[in-house]
C-alpha cells in the first residue's frame, strides 16, 4: 500500500510538472538545440531540412575572422559603443537631473511629468517621429537650425560620421527619464537625519555628496545601469527607422541578424550569429545576477 501511495504521488508530481516541462522543451530547449545544429550548416530559408549542407565551423570562422571588412565584428563593436555611450550618458544626465530636482519647488510635479513623457511612449513609434524630425530637408531640427542662422546643416541620416550619434541621441532622449526616475528613488531613500548629522559636523557639500549621497544611492544606480545595458544591447527600432538595416555605420547585433536571416535568407550563418549573441547576453545576465546576489548578501550582513 505504501508503494502504491508513493507511485501515485510520483505520478501526481510528473502530472503537475509536465505541462511546464513540455512548454520548456518545445519552446526553448528544442529550438535552441535545432539552432545550434543549423549554425553548423549552410541552410537557407527556402531549403527543406533534408537539404541542409553541413559546413562544420565555417560560419563561426566567418564571424570571428580577423579582417577589416568583417561586418559581424563591426556590428559587435558598434553595439558595444552604443551601449557604453548610451548607458553612461543617460545615467549621468538622469542622476544630475534627479539631483537638481531634489529640492521642493512650486510646479515640481508638472516638471517631473514633462520629463517622464518620453519613457511612456512606444520606441518604434517614437523612432518614426524622430525620423521626421531628423529629415534633412523638411525636418523640424534642420529648419530650426537654419532659422537661427546655420548655413550648412548636418546630414543627420546620411552623413556617415553623424548617423551613429543621431541614433544615440534618440536613445538618450528616450531613456534618460528612466535613469532620472530610478535616481530620484535612490536619493529619496536616503534619510534626512544623515544629512543633518553631516551639517552639524560641518561637512562640506562635496564631502556630503561624495560620502553620503553617492555611496547610498549607488546600488540602485548600478541596477538601473544593468537594466539599461541589457535593453540597449537589443537596439533595433531606432536603427531601422533612421538608416534601415545593412548600413555599415549603424549596424547593430539585432539589425545585422535581421539582415542575414530575413533579407539574405542565410539561416545557417544567422543561427551561428544568434548563438554568439546569446553567449554575450548570458554573460551580461550573469553579471547582473551576481550583483543582485551580492546586494542580498549585504542586506543579510546588516
Amino acid at each position: 500500500m505504501a508503494t502504491g501511495q508513493q507511485s501515485s504521488d510520483g505520478l501526481m508530481k510528473w502530472g503537475l510538472v509536465a505541462p511546464a516541462l513540455l512548454l520548456l522543451i518545445g519552446l526553448n530547449i528544442f529550438p535552441l538545440a535545432y539552432n545550434i545544429r543549423l549554425s553548423f550548416t549552410k541552410a537557407t530559408l527556402t531549403q527543406a531540412p533534408a537539404d541542409h549542407e553541413a559546413v562544420g565551423g565555417r560560419n563561426y570562422a566567418r564571424i570571428f575572422k580577423a579582417d577589416e571588412s568583417n561586418r559581424y565584428a563591426a556590428a559587435l563593436r558598434t553595439t558595444a559603443r552604443f551601449v557604453l555611450m548610451a548607458v553612461s550618458i543617460e545615467l549621468l544626465l538622469g542622476y544630475l537631473l534627479a539631483l537638481s530636482l531634489k529640492p521642493r519647488f512650486p510646479g515640481k510635479s508638472v516638471v517631473l511629468l514633462v520629463f517622464l513623457i518620453p519613457m511612456m511612449l512606444s520606441p518604434a513609434v517614437m523612432a518614426l517621429f524622430w525620423n521626421l524630425i531628423y529629415d534633412e530637408e523638411f525636418g523640424v531640427l534642420n529648419q530650426a537650425l537654419r532659422f537661427v542662422g546655420f548655413a550648412s546643416v548636418p546630414g543627420w541620416k546620411t552623413d556617415t560620421a553623424v548617423k551613429f550619434y543621431t541614433i544615440l541621441m534618440i536613445d538618450v532622449w528616450m531613456w534618460t527619464p528612466f535613469m532620472m526616475l530610478i535616481s530620484m528613488a535612490a536619493l529619496n531613500a536616503i534619510p534626512d537625519y544623515i544629512y543633518e548629522a553631516a551639517e552639524i559636523d560641518r561637512a562640506r557639500r562635496w564631502t556630503v555628496f561624495r560620502r553620503i549621497t553617492l555611496p547610498m544611492s549607488a546600488p540602485l544606480l548600478i541596477l538601473a545601469a544593468l537594466l539599461r545595458t541589457t535593453d540597449a544591447l537589443k537596439q533595433f527600432d531606432y536603427v531601422m527607422a533612421i538608416t534601415g538595416p545593412n548600413d555599415p555605420a549603424t549596424e547593430t547585433l539585432s539589425t545585422l541578424m535581421y539582415q542575414v536571416m530575413f533579407r539574405n535568407f542565410k539561416v545557417g550563418l544567422g543561427s551561428a550569429y544568434a548563438i554568439v549573441v546569446l553567449v554575450i547576453v548570458i554573460a551580461v545576465a550573469t553579471l547582473f545576477i551576481r550583483y543582485l546576489d551580492r546586494l542580498r548578501e549585504q542586506e543579510h550582513a546588516l
Binding site: Y193, E196, A198, E199, I200, R211
Partner: peptide
Amino acid sequence: SPAERDMSLVFQNFSLYPDW
C-alpha cells in the same frame, strides 16, 4: 548655523557615513 553653534546631536537612528 548648526555648524557654528558647536553642539553635537546624536540621533535615534544611526547616522554614520556608510562606506567609511
